[in-house]
Amino acid sequence: MNGALDVGLRLLVVFVVFLTFPLIVGQTEHKVMAHMQGRLGPMYAGGFHGWAQLVADGVKFAQKEDVVPAGADRRIFQLAPAVALLPYLLVLLAIPIGPSEGAVGQVVDAGIFFVLAVMGVGVLGSLMAGWASANKFSLLGGLRTAAQLLAYELPMLLAAASVAMAAGTVSLPGIVDAFRWWWLPWQIIGALVFFIAGLAELQRPPFDMPVADSEIIFGAYTEYTGLRFALFLLAEYAGIVVLCGLTTVLFLGGWHGPWGADGLGWLWTLLKTAILAFVVIWLRVTYPRLREDQLQKLSWTLLVPLSLAQIALTGIVKVVIS
Protein backbone atom coordinates (compact mmCIF):
# COMPACT_ATOMS: atom_id res chain seq x y z
CA MET A 1 0.00 0.00 0.00
CA ASN A 2 2.82 2.33 0.95
CA GLY A 3 4.56 1.45 -2.29
CA ALA A 4 1.47 2.36 -4.30
CA LEU A 5 1.26 5.72 -2.51
CA ASP A 6 4.93 6.33 -3.25
CA VAL A 7 4.49 5.58 -6.95
CA GLY A 8 1.35 7.72 -7.10
CA LEU A 9 3.16 10.66 -5.51
CA ARG A 10 6.07 10.34 -7.94
CA LEU A 11 3.74 10.26 -10.93
CA LEU A 12 1.93 13.32 -9.59
CA VAL A 13 5.16 15.27 -9.17
CA VAL A 14 6.37 14.33 -12.66
CA PHE A 15 3.00 15.33 -14.09
CA VAL A 16 2.98 18.69 -12.31
CA VAL A 17 6.54 19.38 -13.49
CA PHE A 18 5.44 18.44 -17.01
CA LEU A 19 2.61 20.99 -16.89
CA THR A 20 4.43 23.87 -15.16
CA PHE A 21 8.07 23.87 -16.32
CA PRO A 22 7.24 24.28 -20.02
CA LEU A 23 5.05 27.27 -19.12
CA ILE A 24 7.88 28.83 -17.11
CA VAL A 25 10.22 28.37 -20.08
CA GLY A 26 7.55 29.83 -22.38
CA GLN A 27 7.01 32.89 -20.21
CA THR A 28 10.77 33.37 -19.88
CA GLU A 29 11.01 33.21 -23.64
CA HIS A 30 8.36 35.94 -24.00
CA LYS A 31 10.22 38.25 -21.64
CA VAL A 32 13.82 37.43 -22.62
CA MET A 33 13.10 37.72 -26.34
CA ALA A 34 11.29 41.00 -25.79
CA HIS A 35 14.15 42.54 -23.82
CA MET A 36 16.75 41.30 -26.29
CA GLN A 37 14.77 43.00 -29.04
CA GLY A 38 14.23 46.24 -27.11
CA ARG A 39 10.56 45.55 -26.31
CA LEU A 40 8.76 44.96 -23.04
CA GLY A 41 6.85 41.81 -23.92
CA PRO A 42 3.59 40.93 -22.17
CA MET A 43 2.87 43.47 -19.40
CA TYR A 44 -0.87 43.34 -18.65
CA ALA A 45 -2.09 39.80 -17.98
CA GLY A 46 -1.99 39.12 -14.23
CA GLY A 47 -0.78 42.62 -13.38
CA PHE A 48 2.88 42.00 -12.55
CA HIS A 49 4.97 42.04 -15.75
CA GLY A 50 2.39 39.94 -17.54
CA TRP A 51 3.13 36.78 -15.54
CA ALA A 52 -0.26 35.26 -16.41
CA GLN A 53 0.10 35.72 -20.17
CA LEU A 54 0.34 31.99 -20.89
CA VAL A 55 -2.61 31.25 -18.59
CA ALA A 56 -4.62 33.74 -20.61
CA ASP A 57 -3.38 32.11 -23.81
CA GLY A 58 -4.49 28.74 -22.46
CA VAL A 59 -7.98 30.04 -21.70
CA LYS A 60 -8.17 31.48 -25.20
CA PHE A 61 -7.02 28.23 -26.83
CA ALA A 62 -9.58 26.20 -24.86
CA GLN A 63 -12.43 28.38 -26.14
CA LYS A 64 -11.49 28.34 -29.80
CA GLU A 65 -13.37 26.28 -32.33
CA ASP A 66 -11.67 23.03 -33.28
CA VAL A 67 -11.57 22.97 -37.09
CA VAL A 68 -10.70 19.76 -38.91
CA PRO A 69 -10.36 20.38 -42.66
CA ALA A 70 -12.95 18.57 -44.75
CA GLY A 71 -10.28 16.74 -46.74
CA ALA A 72 -8.20 15.69 -43.72
CA ASP A 73 -7.68 12.20 -42.36
CA ARG A 74 -9.81 12.96 -39.34
CA ARG A 75 -8.68 10.41 -36.73
CA ILE A 76 -4.97 10.79 -37.41
CA PHE A 77 -5.32 14.56 -37.51
CA GLN A 78 -6.96 14.60 -34.08
CA LEU A 79 -4.57 12.11 -32.54
CA ALA A 80 -1.33 13.77 -33.71
CA PRO A 81 -0.97 16.37 -30.90
CA ALA A 82 -1.15 13.65 -28.25
CA VAL A 83 1.54 11.62 -30.02
CA ALA A 84 3.75 14.70 -30.19
CA LEU A 85 3.27 15.58 -26.53
CA LEU A 86 3.20 12.40 -24.46
CA PRO A 87 6.75 11.08 -25.17
CA TYR A 88 8.22 14.08 -23.34
CA LEU A 89 6.09 13.25 -20.30
CA LEU A 90 7.56 9.75 -20.25
CA VAL A 91 11.12 11.02 -20.63
CA LEU A 92 10.70 13.38 -17.66
CA LEU A 93 10.03 10.35 -15.47
CA ALA A 94 13.54 9.00 -16.04
CA ILE A 95 15.56 12.21 -15.55
CA PRO A 96 17.20 12.28 -12.10
CA ILE A 97 17.62 15.68 -10.42
CA GLY A 98 19.31 14.61 -7.18
CA PRO A 99 21.59 11.85 -5.86
CA SER A 100 19.02 10.06 -3.72
CA GLU A 101 16.43 7.50 -4.77
CA GLY A 102 13.73 10.07 -4.00
CA ALA A 103 14.99 12.62 -6.53
CA VAL A 104 14.08 10.73 -9.69
CA GLY A 105 10.65 9.76 -10.96
CA GLN A 106 11.70 6.21 -11.67
CA VAL A 107 15.14 4.72 -12.23
CA VAL A 108 15.04 3.00 -15.62
CA ASP A 109 18.15 0.85 -15.84
CA ALA A 110 18.65 1.31 -19.59
CA GLY A 111 18.14 5.06 -19.03
CA ILE A 112 19.91 6.67 -22.02
CA PHE A 113 18.49 4.09 -24.33
CA PHE A 114 14.94 4.53 -23.08
CA VAL A 115 15.17 8.31 -23.17
CA LEU A 116 16.54 8.54 -26.72
CA ALA A 117 14.09 5.97 -28.05
CA VAL A 118 11.05 7.65 -26.52
CA MET A 119 12.14 11.16 -27.56
CA GLY A 120 12.28 10.00 -31.17
CA VAL A 121 8.59 9.08 -31.02
CA GLY A 122 7.57 12.73 -30.56
CA VAL A 123 8.60 13.53 -34.11
CA LEU A 124 6.03 11.01 -35.28
CA GLY A 125 3.32 13.42 -34.09
CA SER A 126 4.53 16.13 -36.46
CA LEU A 127 4.74 13.61 -39.27
CA MET A 128 1.17 12.43 -38.61
CA ALA A 129 -0.04 16.03 -38.49
CA GLY A 130 1.74 16.89 -41.72
CA TRP A 131 0.33 13.94 -43.60
CA ALA A 132 -3.21 13.97 -42.19
CA SER A 133 -3.85 17.68 -42.82
CA ALA A 134 -4.25 17.14 -46.60
CA ASN A 135 -2.46 20.44 -47.08
CA LYS A 136 0.57 20.72 -49.36
CA PHE A 137 2.42 23.02 -46.98
CA SER A 138 1.72 20.73 -44.04
CA LEU A 139 3.00 17.79 -46.04
CA LEU A 140 6.20 19.66 -46.87
CA GLY A 141 6.60 20.55 -43.21
CA GLY A 142 6.07 16.94 -42.18
CA LEU A 143 8.66 15.71 -44.67
CA ARG A 144 11.14 18.31 -43.48
CA THR A 145 10.54 17.13 -39.92
CA ALA A 146 11.30 13.58 -40.97
CA ALA A 147 14.47 14.63 -42.80
CA GLN A 148 15.60 16.55 -39.75
CA LEU A 149 15.08 13.57 -37.47
CA LEU A 150 17.04 11.34 -39.86
CA ALA A 151 19.94 13.76 -39.93
CA TYR A 152 20.20 14.62 -36.25
CA GLU A 153 19.21 11.46 -34.41
CA LEU A 154 22.52 9.88 -35.34
CA PRO A 155 24.96 12.48 -33.91
CA MET A 156 22.76 12.67 -30.81
CA LEU A 157 22.96 8.91 -30.39
CA LEU A 158 26.74 8.86 -30.89
CA ALA A 159 27.32 11.71 -28.43
CA ALA A 160 25.21 9.92 -25.83
CA ALA A 161 27.12 6.71 -26.48
CA SER A 162 30.34 8.58 -25.71
CA VAL A 163 29.08 9.46 -22.23
CA ALA A 164 27.89 5.91 -21.68
CA MET A 165 31.44 4.76 -22.54
CA ALA A 166 32.99 7.27 -20.14
CA ALA A 167 30.72 6.20 -17.28
CA GLY A 168 30.63 2.50 -18.14
CA THR A 169 26.87 2.42 -17.64
CA VAL A 170 23.71 3.39 -19.51
CA SER A 171 21.73 4.29 -16.39
CA LEU A 172 21.20 8.04 -15.98
CA PRO A 173 21.82 8.25 -12.19
CA GLY A 174 24.83 5.95 -12.71
CA ILE A 175 26.30 8.36 -15.25
CA VAL A 176 25.95 11.37 -12.95
CA ASP A 177 27.43 9.35 -10.07
CA ALA A 178 30.49 8.58 -12.18
CA PHE A 179 30.90 12.20 -13.27
CA ARG A 180 34.12 14.06 -12.41
CA TRP A 181 34.78 17.71 -13.15
CA TRP A 182 37.40 16.94 -15.83
CA TRP A 183 34.72 15.18 -17.88
CA LEU A 184 33.62 18.68 -18.85
CA PRO A 185 36.61 19.41 -21.13
CA TRP A 186 36.88 15.71 -22.03
CA GLN A 187 33.29 15.47 -23.31
CA ILE A 188 32.82 19.06 -24.50
CA ILE A 189 32.58 18.12 -28.20
CA GLY A 190 29.99 15.49 -27.42
CA ALA A 191 28.06 17.96 -25.28
CA LEU A 192 27.91 20.55 -28.06
CA VAL A 193 26.92 17.95 -30.64
CA PHE A 194 24.22 16.56 -28.34
CA PHE A 195 22.78 19.99 -27.57
CA ILE A 196 22.79 21.18 -31.20
CA ALA A 197 21.29 17.91 -32.45
CA GLY A 198 18.65 18.14 -29.72
CA LEU A 199 17.75 21.67 -30.80
CA ALA A 200 17.36 20.45 -34.36
CA GLU A 201 15.19 17.59 -33.24
CA LEU A 202 12.92 20.00 -31.35
CA GLN A 203 12.75 22.17 -34.48
CA ARG A 204 13.85 25.19 -32.54
CA PRO A 205 15.40 28.15 -34.36
CA PRO A 206 17.88 28.21 -36.09
CA PHE A 207 16.68 24.73 -37.09
CA ASP A 208 13.00 25.57 -37.61
CA MET A 209 12.65 24.83 -41.32
CA PRO A 210 9.76 22.41 -40.68
CA VAL A 211 7.64 25.32 -39.41
CA ALA A 212 9.30 28.10 -41.45
CA ASP A 213 6.43 30.58 -41.45
CA SER A 214 7.70 32.66 -44.35
CA GLU A 215 8.02 29.60 -46.62
CA ILE A 216 5.43 27.00 -45.71
CA ILE A 217 2.98 28.91 -43.45
CA PHE A 218 3.42 26.89 -40.26
CA GLY A 219 4.43 23.51 -41.63
CA ALA A 220 2.67 20.52 -40.14
CA TYR A 221 0.70 22.66 -37.69
CA THR A 222 -0.91 24.96 -40.29
CA GLU A 223 -4.39 23.46 -40.02
CA TYR A 224 -4.49 23.20 -36.23
CA THR A 225 -6.52 25.49 -33.99
CA GLY A 226 -7.48 25.76 -30.36
CA LEU A 227 -6.57 23.08 -27.88
CA ARG A 228 -4.76 20.81 -30.35
CA PHE A 229 -2.51 23.63 -31.47
CA ALA A 230 -1.84 24.45 -27.81
CA LEU A 231 -0.75 20.86 -27.20
CA PHE A 232 1.77 21.11 -30.06
CA LEU A 233 3.16 24.29 -28.48
CA LEU A 234 3.29 22.60 -25.08
CA ALA A 235 5.20 19.73 -26.70
CA GLU A 236 7.80 22.14 -28.03
CA TYR A 237 8.44 23.69 -24.62
CA ALA A 238 8.30 20.35 -22.80
CA GLY A 239 10.93 19.29 -25.33
CA ILE A 240 13.14 22.19 -24.29
CA VAL A 241 12.86 21.18 -20.64
CA VAL A 242 13.69 17.57 -21.50
CA LEU A 243 16.62 18.43 -23.75
CA CYS A 244 18.16 20.84 -21.21
CA GLY A 245 17.60 18.35 -18.40
CA LEU A 246 19.24 15.56 -20.37
CA THR A 247 22.21 17.70 -21.40
CA THR A 248 22.66 18.64 -17.74
CA VAL A 249 22.52 15.03 -16.58
CA LEU A 250 24.71 13.58 -19.32
CA PHE A 251 27.35 16.26 -19.81
CA LEU A 252 27.23 18.89 -17.06
CA GLY A 253 27.32 16.63 -14.05
CA GLY A 254 23.72 17.03 -12.90
CA TRP A 255 23.74 17.56 -9.15
CA HIS A 256 27.52 17.96 -8.83
CA GLY A 257 28.51 21.51 -7.95
CA PRO A 258 31.52 23.37 -6.55
CA TRP A 259 30.41 22.66 -2.96
CA GLY A 260 29.63 18.97 -3.26
CA ALA A 261 26.45 17.11 -4.05
CA ASP A 262 24.99 16.95 -0.54
CA GLY A 263 21.69 18.53 0.36
CA LEU A 264 21.11 21.07 -2.35
CA GLY A 265 22.34 18.97 -5.27
CA TRP A 266 18.93 19.06 -6.97
CA LEU A 267 19.22 22.85 -7.04
CA TRP A 268 22.33 22.54 -9.20
CA THR A 269 20.45 20.35 -11.64
CA LEU A 270 17.61 22.85 -11.89
CA LEU A 271 20.01 25.79 -12.20
CA LYS A 272 22.00 24.18 -15.01
CA THR A 273 18.80 23.20 -16.78
CA ALA A 274 17.50 26.76 -16.49
CA ILE A 275 20.72 28.22 -17.87
CA LEU A 276 20.58 25.85 -20.84
CA ALA A 277 16.94 26.80 -21.44
CA PHE A 278 18.06 30.43 -21.49
CA VAL A 279 20.69 29.53 -24.09
CA VAL A 280 17.98 27.88 -26.21
CA ILE A 281 15.99 31.12 -26.15
CA TRP A 282 19.12 33.18 -26.78
CA LEU A 283 19.98 31.15 -29.89
CA ARG A 284 16.48 31.72 -31.22
CA VAL A 285 16.92 35.47 -31.00
CA THR A 286 20.48 35.43 -32.34
CA TYR A 287 20.61 33.22 -35.42
CA PRO A 288 18.64 33.29 -38.66
CA ARG A 289 17.06 30.10 -39.92
CA LEU A 290 19.29 27.68 -41.83
CA ARG A 291 18.34 26.52 -45.30
CA GLU A 292 17.21 22.90 -45.64
CA ASP A 293 20.39 21.80 -47.45
CA GLN A 294 22.63 23.67 -45.01
CA LEU A 295 20.89 21.82 -42.21
CA GLN A 296 21.55 18.41 -43.74
CA LYS A 297 25.10 19.36 -44.54
CA LEU A 298 25.79 20.58 -41.00
CA SER A 299 24.72 17.26 -39.57
CA TRP A 300 26.33 14.80 -41.99
CA THR A 301 29.58 16.58 -42.68
CA LEU A 302 30.23 18.21 -39.31
CA LEU A 303 28.28 16.78 -36.39
CA VAL A 304 28.56 13.09 -37.29
CA PRO A 305 32.36 13.18 -37.86
CA LEU A 306 32.77 15.24 -34.68
CA SER A 307 30.80 12.76 -32.62
CA LEU A 308 32.80 9.87 -34.08
CA ALA A 309 35.99 11.72 -33.09
CA GLN A 310 34.57 12.19 -29.61
CA ILE A 311 33.94 8.46 -29.31
CA ALA A 312 37.53 7.74 -30.34
CA LEU A 313 38.82 10.26 -27.79
CA THR A 314 36.60 8.86 -25.05
CA GLY A 315 37.73 5.30 -25.82
CA ILE A 316 41.44 6.13 -25.75
CA VAL A 317 41.32 8.17 -22.55
CA LYS A 318 39.13 5.63 -20.80
CA VAL A 319 41.40 2.69 -21.63
CA VAL A 320 44.53 4.65 -20.71
CA ILE A 321 43.28 5.68 -17.27
CA SER A 322 41.74 2.33 -16.31
Binding site: V7, L11, A62, D66, A82, L90, L93, A94, G226, L227
Partner: peptide
Protein backbone atom coordinates in the same frame (compact mmCIF):
# COMPACT_ATOMS: atom_id res chain seq x y z
CA UNK B 1 5.68 2.73 -13.65
CA UNK B 2 6.46 4.05 -17.13
CA UNK B 3 3.29 2.35 -18.37
CA UNK B 4 1.32 3.89 -15.52
CA UNK B 5 2.60 7.36 -16.42
CA UNK B 6 1.65 6.73 -20.05
CA UNK B 7 -1.87 5.93 -18.83
CA UNK B 8 -1.91 9.18 -16.84
CA UNK B 9 -0.82 11.05 -19.97
CA UNK B 10 -3.51 9.45 -22.13
CA UNK B 11 -6.09 10.28 -19.47
CA UNK B 12 -4.89 13.90 -19.42
CA UNK B 13 -5.24 14.23 -23.18
CA UNK B 14 -8.64 12.54 -23.16
CA UNK B 15 -9.94 14.82 -20.40
CA UNK B 16 -8.52 17.89 -22.15
CA UNK B 17 -10.17 16.97 -25.45
CA UNK B 18 -13.44 16.08 -23.70
CA UNK B 19 -13.51 19.32 -21.73
CA UNK B 20 -12.58 21.25 -24.87
CA UNK B 21 -15.59 19.77 -26.63
CA UNK B 22 -17.87 21.17 -23.92
CA UNK B 23 -16.24 24.61 -23.91
CA UNK B 24 -15.79 25.49 -27.55
Amino acid sequence: VVGLLAAVGVLFVAVAFGAGRLLR
